[in-house]
C-alpha cells in the first residue's frame, strides 16, 4: 500500500514478523527496513524522527545509508528551440539526491550531443518549468524546492544555448564542482569545529571525501566524513549547526545564520526551535491549516526532532542541513 500521507512511500506489512518494510520511496528515501510494530510513517506524518525513537544507535547508520542512496527518477527533454539534425528522444535517469546535476549528467550530454551540430553546442544547463536549476545546490534540494508535489518522473529541460549568466554558475568541469563541494565542507567545519577538523585533514583525506561523492562510494565517504561529525560529548553537539533554509517565495536564495544545537542550560534545540527563529511562518498555529511544508530529503521530519540529530544524520555530503520550505498544497 502507498503511504496515504506522503504518497512516496510504499509500505508493506510482513505477515510473518509483523514488521513494516519501506520498499521504494521514489522522491525520498529508499529501502528502509523498519523493525518496529508501529508504522509511524503511516499513522502520523511521514517522519524520520518517529522511526528514530524506535531505533537503536546502530540503526541510525541505516539512516545515513538511506539518505545517501535516495534517488529521483528523472526525464530529460531537449529544449524545443535547440536546433537538431534529427529528433531528440527524452533521456531517463535515476538521479542521486545527494549529488550535483552537472556531476551525474554526462550521459545526458552525450545523448543530446548525438543529434546536434557541433557548432550549436555551448555549455549545458537545466531548467524546470521556467526556472534555471542551480547545479550547485544538491539535486534533492532542487527537487524538494521546485517539484515536491508534482508527478514523477521529474521532467527537466536541457539547454545548450542562451546560458543564463545572471542566474547560474558556470560549470565547465568537475574541478568546479569539487571546489564548490570542498568549500561547503570547509565552511560547515568552520561552524562546527572552527575549521579545526578539516584543517587537520590531509589533502588525500579531502580527496577521499570528494571521490566518495563522485563515485557514489558510501563507505569511502563516511570513513572520512565520520570525523567531521564528531564533537566532545560534554558539549552535546557542534559549536554551531551548518544549515540553510530555502524558500521560493523571495529573491533571497537562502537563510543562513548562527544557531547552536542546545540552549545555554543544555536543552536540545529542535527543528521547531530553529524554524521559530529563522522562519516562524512555517510553524502552524493552533487549529490553523498548515501553510508550509518543511522538507528535508523528500520527507517532513517532525518539528520535535533534535536539530543536532538532524545535522548528523540528514545533512548532505557537503555537511550542510538543507531545509526546504514550500507552500503547502491546498487540496
Amino acid at each position: 500500500m502507498l503511504c496515504d500521507w506522503c504518497r512516496y512511500v510504499r509500505v508493506q506489512l510482513n505477515d510473518n514478523t509483523g514488521a513494516f518494510s519501506f520498499l521504494t520511496i521514489a522522491g525520498g528515501l529508499i529501502r528502509t527496513q523498519h523493525k518496529s510494530n508501529v508504522c509511524s510513517f503511516v499513522t502520523r506524518r511521514h517522519s524520520l524522527c518517529a522511526t528514530w525513537s524506535y531505533r537503536s544507535m546502530a540503526d541510525d547508520k541505516d539512516v545515513l545509508r538511506d539518505v545517501w542512496f535516495g534517488r529521483i527518477p528523472t526525464c530529460f527533454t531537449l529544449n524545443q528551440d535547440e536546433i537538431t539534425e534529427r529528433e531528440a528522444e527524452p533521456f531517463y535517469l535515476l538521479l542521486p539526491r545527494v549529488s550535483y546535476l552537472t556531476l551525474v549528467t554526462d550521459k545526458v550530454k552525450k545523448h543530446f550531443h548525438k543529434v546536434m551540430r557541433q557548432e550549436d553546442l555551448e555549455e549545458m544547463w537545466f531548467e524546470y518549468e521556467g526556472t534555471p536549476l542551480k547545479w550547485h545546490y544538491p539535486i534533492g534540494v532542487l527537487f524538494d524546492l521546485h517539484a515536491s508535489n508534482t508527478a514523477l518522473p521529474w521532467s527537466i529541460t536541457v539547454h545548450f544555448k542562451d546560458f543564463p549568466e545572471q542566474d547560474l554558475l558556470h560549470c565547465p568541469s568537475n574541478s568546479v564542482i569539487e571546489a564548490h563541494f570542498m568549500s561547503s565542507i570547509k565552511e560547515a567545519d568552520a561552524l562546527k569545529h572552527k575549521g579545526q577538523v578539516v584543517n587537520e585533514m590531509q589533502k588525500k583525506d579531502h580527496k577521499q571525501l570528494w571521490m566518495g561523492l563522485q563515485n557514489d562510494k558510501f563507505d569511502q565517504f563516511w570513513a572520512m566524513n565520520r570525523k567531521l561529525m564528531e564533537y566532545p560529548t560534554e558539549e552535546g553537539g557542534f559549536r554551531y549547526l551548518p544549515f540553510r533554509i530555502y524558500q521560493t517565495m523571495s529573491d533571497r536564495p537562502f537563510i543562513q545564520k548562527l544557531f547552536r544545537p542546545a540552549t545555554p542550560d543544555g536543552h536540545a534545540h529542535t527543528l521547531g526551535d530553529l524554524l521559530k527563529e529563522m522562519f516562524p511562518a512555517a510553524i502552524p498555529q493552533d487549529d490553523e491549516q498548515m501553510k508550509y511544508q518543511v522538507i528535508i530529503h523528500g520527507i517532513e521530519p517532525m518539528l520535535e526532532t533534535p536539530i543536532q540529530w538532524l545535522s548528523e544524520h540528514l545533512s548532505h555530503p557537503d555537511n550542510f542541513l538543507h531545509i526546504c520550505i514550500i507552500p503547502a498544497p491546498n487540496d
Partner: peptide, 16 residues
C-alpha cells in the same frame, strides 16, 4: 587556484 578565487552564488542576491 580552486581555494583562492572561484565563482559562487552571492548569498544575498542569488547571482553569480
Amino acid at each position: 587556484p580552486w581555494d583562492t578565487i572561484t565563482q559562487q552564488e552571492h548569498p544575498l542576491l542569488g547571482q553569480p
